[in-house]
Amino acid sequence: MSIAGKKIGRYLFALFLIFSMNFIIPRAMPGDPLTNLLGEDVALTDSTVELLRSEMGLDKPWSEQYIDYWWGILHLDLGYSYHLHSAVSTILLSRIKWTLMLSLPSVVLGALLGTFMGALAGWKRRSARRKMEASSFLMIYCTPPFFLSLMCLYIFSFRLGLFPLKGFYSTGSPIDIIHHLLLPVLVMTLFSSSRNYMIMRGSVLQEKCNLYAAFARAKGLYDEEILFRHIFKNALLPIITMLALDFGFIFSGALFIEIVFSMDGMGNLIYDALMSRDYPVLQGSFLIITVMVVSANLLADILYGHLDPRVSRY
């Protein structure tokens, strides 16, 4: 138990470091924060500038700003976006909701499809069907995401008119939302499953040459029993980190897909914030992604210990 405690402590320390860096980096950058926030073309009177500076706490020394920064984080106050005229936490919450609808089904489906089909493909490498399947997944894996998205959009939405062209919704009813999400989720699922498929296939190919697989066969296990009772768990080990990272980046959205399908999720939010130098939004997004990535790593760590007893002893 103390090992788990130590691990959690280490991750909390990592979070603390990243959060602190998130505080230091913008302040260490050249230029005036206000100019960054408002843009260079905005002309303000000196008194307005002073007012804004004190409102944002910029007139205080760094140490006090640092304490204020943590105070804000602990109260889920991530600042105010002068571009979007709204509190950052409010913006993030509304965007995350939509992004989650897009990425969660794709990540889950991609993980399940990719690992199971990949495992079977590695097990029966020589069958003609598996070979066909492997080459199609390889092709998907090698295609740039935006290109595949564009192709799907062009064929299924523009030519065939099966799906809407853009956005998360038009009327807002559940059916309408699902209709909008179907194609992008499909494309993302294809991507995530093709990657998991390739890794899992290679992993099974490697694991099945081990002596324990031969001994399982000698014990009387039949065909896929060997795969699912013995090889699958071992082959899963290299893919755990990837799956965990997928979950870690679940809030960051899928930038290319969101751009192609014109969906206002986290990916687009970060992209726009980057383009317009909306630092509060960027900082807030990064903080949330950091928390997710770190907790996903922690999850992977715990999962590893659970799956592979050799890991948990150290």
Partner: peptide, 24 residues
């Protein structure tokens, strides 16, 4: 063969540590 293996004819391999599944 899978019905015969392990129940009627069993095998003991060389290299026992490699023949057992490390995570079971």
């Amino acid at each position: 063969m899978s019905h015969i293996r392990g129940s009627k004819i069993a095998v003991i391999f060389q290299n026992p540590s490699m023949s057992l599944n490390p995570i079971i």
